[in-house]
Protein backbone atom coordinates (compact mmCIF):
# COMPACT_ATOMS: atom_id res chain seq x y z
CA UNK A 1 0.00 0.00 0.00
CA UNK A 2 2.70 2.45 1.07
CA UNK A 3 4.80 1.40 -1.92
CA UNK A 4 2.03 2.36 -4.35
CA UNK A 5 1.64 5.71 -2.57
CA UNK A 6 5.39 6.25 -2.82
CA UNK A 7 5.34 5.65 -6.56
CA UNK A 8 2.45 8.04 -7.00
CA UNK A 9 4.33 10.68 -5.04
CA UNK A 10 7.36 10.08 -7.26
CA UNK A 11 5.24 10.43 -10.36
CA UNK A 12 3.93 13.75 -9.13
CA UNK A 13 7.23 15.20 -8.02
CA UNK A 14 9.37 14.06 -10.95
CA UNK A 15 7.95 16.52 -13.53
CA UNK A 16 8.27 19.39 -11.01
CA UNK A 17 11.97 18.68 -10.56
CA UNK A 18 12.65 18.10 -14.24
CA UNK A 19 11.02 21.33 -15.43
CA UNK A 20 13.03 23.23 -12.80
CA UNK A 21 16.29 21.68 -13.96
CA UNK A 22 15.50 22.26 -17.64
CA UNK A 23 14.94 25.97 -17.14
CA UNK A 24 17.91 26.22 -14.78
CA UNK A 25 19.99 25.02 -17.74
CA UNK A 26 18.25 27.17 -20.36
CA UNK A 27 17.86 30.49 -18.47
CA UNK A 28 20.60 30.22 -15.87
CA UNK A 29 23.40 28.67 -17.91
CA UNK A 30 22.86 28.53 -21.71
CA UNK A 31 21.33 32.00 -22.08
CA UNK A 32 24.04 34.01 -20.23
CA UNK A 33 26.74 31.97 -22.00
CA UNK A 34 25.15 32.65 -25.40
CA UNK A 35 25.02 36.40 -24.74
CA UNK A 36 28.62 36.30 -23.44
CA UNK A 37 29.87 34.43 -26.53
CA UNK A 38 28.12 36.63 -29.08
CA UNK A 39 29.11 39.86 -27.27
CA UNK A 40 32.74 38.84 -26.88
CA UNK A 41 32.97 38.05 -30.60
CA UNK A 42 31.14 41.06 -32.05
CA UNK A 43 31.48 43.89 -29.49
CA UNK A 44 34.42 42.99 -27.23
CA UNK A 45 35.14 46.64 -26.33
CA UNK A 46 31.72 47.16 -24.73
CA UNK A 47 31.43 43.58 -23.45
CA UNK A 48 34.62 44.05 -21.44
CA UNK A 49 33.64 47.32 -19.80
CA UNK A 50 34.95 49.96 -22.25
CA UNK A 51 38.47 49.71 -20.85
CA UNK A 52 40.80 52.59 -21.65
CA UNK A 53 44.37 51.97 -22.76
CA UNK A 54 47.21 54.46 -22.46
CA UNK A 55 50.79 53.78 -23.54
CA UNK A 56 50.10 50.09 -23.80
CA UNK A 57 48.58 49.57 -20.35
CA UNK A 58 44.98 49.59 -19.17
CA UNK A 59 44.31 52.66 -17.04
CA UNK A 60 40.58 52.38 -16.30
CA UNK A 61 37.11 52.24 -17.79
CA UNK A 62 35.29 55.07 -19.52
CA UNK A 63 32.20 54.17 -17.49
CA UNK A 64 33.75 54.01 -14.01
CA UNK A 65 35.07 57.05 -12.12
CA UNK A 66 38.54 56.74 -10.65
CA UNK A 67 38.69 59.58 -8.13
CA UNK A 68 41.45 61.82 -9.43
CA UNK A 69 43.12 63.74 -6.59
CA UNK A 70 46.12 65.55 -8.10
CA UNK A 71 45.53 69.29 -8.71
CA UNK A 72 46.66 69.04 -12.35
CA UNK A 73 43.64 66.89 -13.27
CA UNK A 74 39.88 67.33 -13.42
CA UNK A 75 38.30 65.60 -10.40
CA UNK A 76 35.15 63.50 -10.25
CA UNK A 77 32.04 64.73 -8.48
CA UNK A 78 31.81 63.06 -5.08
CA UNK A 79 28.62 61.86 -3.35
CA UNK A 80 26.71 60.52 -6.18
CA UNK A 81 24.60 57.16 -5.88
CA UNK A 82 26.81 54.65 -7.52
CA UNK A 83 30.04 56.11 -6.12
CA UNK A 84 31.56 55.65 -9.57
CA UNK A 85 29.72 58.34 -11.56
CA UNK A 86 32.20 58.92 -14.43
CA UNK A 87 30.82 62.28 -15.55
CA UNK A 88 30.69 65.87 -14.33
CA UNK A 89 28.51 68.71 -15.54
CA UNK A 90 29.98 71.57 -17.56
CA UNK A 91 29.67 73.87 -14.53
CA UNK A 92 31.56 71.39 -12.36
CA UNK A 93 34.29 71.24 -15.03
CA UNK A 94 34.53 75.01 -15.46
CA UNK A 95 34.78 75.47 -11.68
CA UNK A 96 38.00 73.44 -11.70
CA UNK A 97 39.66 75.38 -14.52
CA UNK A 98 41.35 78.05 -12.31
CA UNK A 99 42.92 75.39 -10.07
CA UNK A 100 44.26 73.39 -12.99
CA UNK A 101 45.54 76.55 -14.65
CA UNK A 102 47.39 77.59 -11.44
CA UNK A 103 49.05 74.22 -11.00
CA UNK A 104 49.98 73.63 -14.65
CA UNK A 105 50.36 77.09 -16.20
CA UNK A 106 47.93 76.17 -19.00
CA UNK A 107 45.86 79.28 -19.89
CA UNK A 108 42.26 79.15 -18.66
CA UNK A 109 40.92 79.87 -22.18
CA UNK A 110 42.62 76.76 -23.52
CA UNK A 111 41.24 74.64 -20.66
CA UNK A 112 37.71 75.92 -21.24
CA UNK A 113 38.05 75.18 -24.95
CA UNK A 114 39.22 71.66 -24.10
CA UNK A 115 36.21 71.11 -21.82
CA UNK A 116 33.83 72.31 -24.53
CA UNK A 117 35.45 70.06 -27.12
CA UNK A 118 34.94 67.04 -24.86
CA UNK A 119 31.25 67.49 -24.04
CA UNK A 120 29.44 64.19 -24.52
CA UNK A 121 27.64 64.82 -27.83
CA UNK A 122 24.44 62.96 -26.97
CA UNK A 123 24.14 64.57 -23.53
CA UNK A 124 23.00 67.83 -25.13
CA UNK A 125 19.69 66.21 -26.07
CA UNK A 126 18.79 64.90 -22.60
CA UNK A 127 19.14 67.76 -20.14
CA UNK A 128 22.37 69.09 -18.64
CA UNK A 129 25.40 68.54 -20.89
CA UNK A 130 28.27 66.69 -19.21
CA UNK A 131 31.85 65.55 -19.78
CA UNK A 132 33.57 62.27 -19.02
CA UNK A 133 36.33 62.96 -16.49
CA UNK A 134 38.74 60.26 -17.64
CA UNK A 135 38.34 61.20 -21.31
CA UNK A 136 38.87 64.87 -20.41
CA UNK A 137 42.06 64.14 -18.45
CA UNK A 138 43.42 61.94 -21.24
CA UNK A 139 42.72 64.77 -23.69
CA UNK A 140 44.67 67.10 -21.36
CA UNK A 141 47.66 64.78 -21.32
CA UNK A 142 47.56 64.45 -25.09
CA UNK A 143 47.30 68.21 -25.66
CA UNK A 144 50.06 69.12 -23.16
CA UNK A 145 52.53 66.21 -23.10
CA UNK A 146 55.34 68.28 -21.60
CA UNK A 147 53.18 69.53 -18.70
CA UNK A 148 52.00 65.99 -17.95
CA UNK A 149 55.40 64.36 -18.46
CA UNK A 150 55.18 63.14 -14.83
CA UNK A 151 52.53 60.63 -15.90
CA UNK A 152 54.18 57.35 -16.76
Amino acid sequence: MSKIKGNKFGQRVRPLIIISLIFLLICGVAYPLLITGVSQIFVPYQANGELVHYHGSTVGSHLIAQNFTQPEFFHDAVGSTSGVDPDITLQQAYAQVPRISRSTGIPTDSLIALVNANVNPISKFFGDPYVNVLALNLALIKAYPSVYAFVE
Binding site: P32, T36, S39, V43, Q46, A47, N48, G49, E50, L63
Partner: peptide, 8 residues
Protein backbone atom coordinates in the same frame (compact mmCIF):
# COMPACT_ATOMS: atom_id res chain seq x y z
CA UNK B 1 25.91 45.36 -24.80
CA UNK B 2 26.24 47.58 -27.87
CA UNK B 3 25.13 50.51 -25.67
CA UNK B 4 27.90 49.73 -23.17
CA UNK B 5 26.57 47.17 -20.67
CA UNK B 6 29.35 44.57 -20.11
CA UNK B 7 28.91 40.82 -20.60
CA UNK B 8 31.86 38.67 -19.56
Amino acid sequence: VVLGVPQS
